[in-house]
Write a protein that binds this DNA or RNA. Structure first.
Lengths: 220, 220
DNA sequence: ACCTGAACACCGTTCAAGT
DNA sequence: ACCTGAACACCGTTCAAGT
C-alpha cells in the first residue's frame, strides 16, 4: 500500500513550525505563504500539499495555540470552583498573549476546533460544581471565554504580550499619554488616570473575571 | 490666506465614505487604498493627501464607528443604573455589529480616539451612581468594554452582524453542526447544544453582561 | 499643494509541466 | 503524488515629474 510518487519532504507540523517561526521573528503581519515557503527552502506552491490555503494555515495555527492552554488549573483541589475559574482565565490569557501572534490569530476566524470543545467542556464541569444549572453553566462558560478573548484582543492591539515587565512599561507610557489629554471634557477619566493606565494588567483582569464569576454565582 | 496650488478635490470625509462603501459592498477583506482610490476615480497616491497611510485610514474608520455608538441609553431616567449599563452594552454591540466592517475594524488597532474617551467617561458617571468607588468604577468601565468587544469579535468571526434574523439562522446552522460532533469526549457540551448554538445571540449577551454588572455591584 | 505615471517589493492562487 | 516555473491579478508605498 505504498503511496505512489515521490515521498513528502515536509509535513503540516513542519509548515506550522515554520509559520510560528516567521511570526516570532518578524511579527504577525509578516506571515505569508510565500515567506513560510522561503524559510523552508521551497516554492510557495509546495505548501498547498500540506495546507489547503492561507485560511487553512491560520486555522491550524489557532488550533495549536488553543492546545497550549493548560486546563489543569480547573482541577486544583485546594481552590474553590470560583477561584479555579479565575486562575484558569489568568492562565489562558497568559498563554494567548505569550504565544507568538496568539492574539492576532484568535481574531482571524471562528474558534471551533477540537481543543476549543475540550476547553468548553472543562469549564462546564467546573461551573456545574458551583451549583449552577447546566444551562447557566453553558452560558457562563461562553461569558468567560468572551472575557478572556476580549481582554487579549485589546491588550494585543495596545502592544502587550502578557509579560509583567512589559505591562509595567506600557502602563507608564499610557499614564504619560493621559497627562497630555485635555481633561476638561472627561473629568472622571482624568481623575482615574492611574487605573486607566493599568487597564491592561493582570491585576485588572483578575478583578473583572472575579466580578463576572461572582455575578454568575449570586444569580445561580 | 488662500492656499497656493490646485484646490482639493477630495476630503478625509469623502475618503472615509468611499472606504465604508467598499466594505459594505465587498467586505472588509476587499478594503485597500487602491480600491478606495478606484471608487473615487483617482490614482492611489492621491489618497495620501488626506490620510497618512493605510493604518491612518483604519484609525479614521474606527473613530467614525465609535462616534456612532449611542450614549443616550446611559441617561434613561426610568431605568436603574444597572439596567442602563446593560442596555448601553446591548446598544453598543448592535452598533458595532451593524456597521459595515465594524467588528473587523475594532481589531485593527487600539481604540483610544476622542469618542472612546467620551464613552469611558459616560460609563464612569453611571457606575459611580451605583455606589461604586471611583477606582472600581474605572475598573468596571473597562470590564464592560472588554465584554462588548470580545462578544463582537467572536460573533463577527462566526459571521454574525447583529441582525436578529441572521442570529436565528446561524443558531440553527450551529445546532446542526454540533449534532455531527462526536459527543463521547464532551458530554456536557453535547447536552447543552441548544445553549451553545445560541452563544452569539442578544439573549446570551444580555445574560452575561447582567452577571458582570451584578458581580460589580455585589462586591462594591 | 495636489495629483499623475512609473516603479519597487511584495501578496495568494492557479495552471501546465516535469519527475 | 509532489514539486517547480511561469503567470495572473492583486497589494502599500515611494519618487520624480507635471500643473
Amino acid at each position: 500500500m505504498a503511496a505512489p510518487g515521490p515521498a513528502r519532504r515536509l509535513s503540516e507540523r513542519i509548515v506550522l513550525d515554520a509559520a510560528f517561526g516567521v511570526v516570532r521573528d518578524h511579527g504577525f503581519t509578516a506571515l505569508s505563504i510565500r515567506r513560510v515557503a522561503a524559510v523552508l527552502g521551497v516554492t510557495p506552491n509546495a505548501l498547498y500539499t500540506y495546507v489547503p490555503d492561507r485560511a487553512g494555515l491560520l486555522r491550524g495555527m489557532v488550533e495549536r495555540v488553543m492546545s497550549a492552554v493548560d486546563l489543569g488549573t480547573l482541577a486544583i483541589a485546594t481552590l474553590s470552583p470560583a477561584e479555579r475559574l479565575v486562575e484558569f482565565a489568568v492562565a489562558m490569557r497568559r498563554t494567548l498573549l505569550g504565544h507568538p501572534g496568539g492574539a492576532a490569530l484568535i481574531m482571524t476566524g471562528p474558534i471551533d476546533g477540537p481543543h476549543a470543545l475540550l476547553l468548553n467542556e472543562a469549564l462546564l464541569r467546573t461551573l456545574t460544581e458551583t451549583g449552577l444549572t447546566l444551562d447557566d453553566a453553558a452560558r457562563g462558560a461562553y461569558a468567560l471565554q468572551v472575557h478572556v478573548l476580549g481582554t487579549v484582543m485589546l491588550e494585543a492591539a495596545d502592544g502587550g504580550d502578557g509579560d509583567p515587565a512589559r505591562e509595567e512599561a506600557l502602563a507608564i507610557e499610557r499614564r504619560a499619554a493621559l497627562e497630555r489629554v485635555d481633561a476638561s471634557g472627561v473629568p472622571l477619566t482624568a481623575q482615574t488616570a492611574d487605573i486607566v493606565a493599568r487597564y491592561n494588567t493582570t491585576a485588572q483582569f483578575r478583578w473583572s473575571v472575579r466580578r463576572l464569576v461572582d455575578g454568575m454565582l449570586v444569580a445561580g
